[in-house]
Amino acid sequence: MIRKTRKIRKLRGSRSIGGGCTKKRRGAGHRGGRGKAGGHKHMWTWVVKFDPDRYGKHGFKRPQKTINRFRTVNLDYLDDNAEKLVERELAQKEGDTIIIDVTQLGYDKVLGKGKLSRSLTIKAPHFSASAARKIEDNGGEAINL
């Protein structure tokens, strides 16, 4: 139904504008807080009745797979630090070749990043295809443990 004048126009001159006592509609306390405040306290019956799944954990999230199963080391690191490893007795030198056991260094897999400048004999549980190819192309040896 269309009204010529709205009710608020009639109420404008009054003190409380239809809200009863002037203290009643003063702030958000009149409605028990703003928004979803009090859901665990004084509005708990509303939550139980209308939104029972609001709190708590729901469903199951699958654990993500670990990306890297191996502790890896790159060929360029082994090539750059081969002499230092011999000095620290973590690698052995036989003639021109240096023998490195990466398990003594705490690694499981050799990756093929970088270039080799010398022939290395590397012992490791796992090699990437590019690492094994680079080692053998340079006159070295890739030994699987």
Score class of each variant (00 low, 15 high):
residue 102 V to E: 01
residue 40 H to A: 15
residue 94 E to V: 11
residue 77 Y to P: 00
residue 78 L to Q: 05
residue 109 K to A: 07
residue 59 G to L: 10
residue 101 D to N: 14
residue 75 L to K: 00
residue 104 Q to S: 15
residue 81 N to I: 05
residue 84 K to Q: 12
residue 95 G to T: 01
residue 74 N to E: 13
residue 64 Q to N: 04
residue 56 G to D: 06
residue 49 K to C: 10
residue 90 L to P: 00
residue 49 K to F: 02
residue 78 L to V: 10
residue 83 E to Y: 04
residue 100 I to H: 01
residue 103 T to L: 04
residue 108 D to L: 05
residue 92 Q to K: 14
residue 39 G to A: 10
residue 114 G to E: 02
residue 86 V to M: 14
residue 56 G to M: 09
residue 60 F to E: 11
residue 54 R to S: 06
residue 54 R to W: 08
residue 84 K to V: 07
residue 67 I to G: 11
residue 114 G to M: 12
residue 95 G to Y: 04
residue 54 R to G: 02
residue 105 L to M: 08
residue 102 V to S: 05
residue 89 E to N: 13
residue 38 G to Q: 02
residue 44 W to V: 12
residue 46 W to A: 04
residue 108 D to M: 10
residue 113 K to P: 00
residue 115 K to D: 05
residue 107 Y to N: 05
residue 100 I to V: 08
residue 113 K to D: 09
residue 80 D to I: 04
residue 89 E to T: 04
residue 80 D to Y: 07
residue 58 H to D: 08
residue 54 R to F: 10
residue 108 D to P: 03
residue 110 V to Y: 02
residue 44 W to E: 15
residue 115 K to V: 02
residue 114 G to K: 13
residue 95 G to R: 03
residue 90 L to H: 09
residue 100 I to C: 05
residue 50 F to K: 15
residue 79 D to G: 03
residue 86 V to S: 08
residue 98 I to L: 11
residue 115 K to N: 06
residue 77 Y to I: 15
residue 112 G to I: 00
residue 73 V to D: 04
residue 87 E to G: 12
residue 58 H to Y: 07
residue 50 F to G: 09
residue 70 F to Q: 02
residue 86 V to G: 09
residue 95 G to A: 07
residue 42 H to F: 01
residue 59 G to S: 13
residue 37 A to P: 00
residue 77 Y to Q: 06
residue 73 V to Q: 01
residue 37 A to T: 04
residue 110 V to L: 13
residue 107 Y to R: 09
residue 97 T to S: 15
residue 38 G to A: 05
residue 38 G to F: 01
residue 46 W to L: 10
residue 72 T to G: 01
residue 88 R to G: 03
residue 49 K to L: 10
residue 62 R to G: 11
residue 41 K to C: 03
residue 86 V to Y: 07
residue 37 A to K: 07
residue 109 K to Q: 11
residue 51 D to K: 12
residue 51 D to I: 14
residue 55 Y to A: 11
residue 109 K to D: 00
residue 48 V to Y: 13
residue 52 P to W: 03
residue 59 G to F: 06
residue 56 G to S: 08
residue 60 F to L: 13
residue 112 G to W: 00
residue 77 Y to L: 11
residue 56 G to R: 08
residue 82 A to G: 05
residue 112 G to N: 01
residue 86 V to A: 14
residue 75 L to P: 01
residue 49 K to S: 12
residue 83 E to S: 12
residue 111 L to K: 03
residue 62 R to V: 04
residue 52 P to A: 03
residue 114 G to S: 12
residue 108 D to C: 03
residue 65 K to C: 07
residue 89 E to D: 08
residue 93 K to A: 09
residue 74 N to K: 06
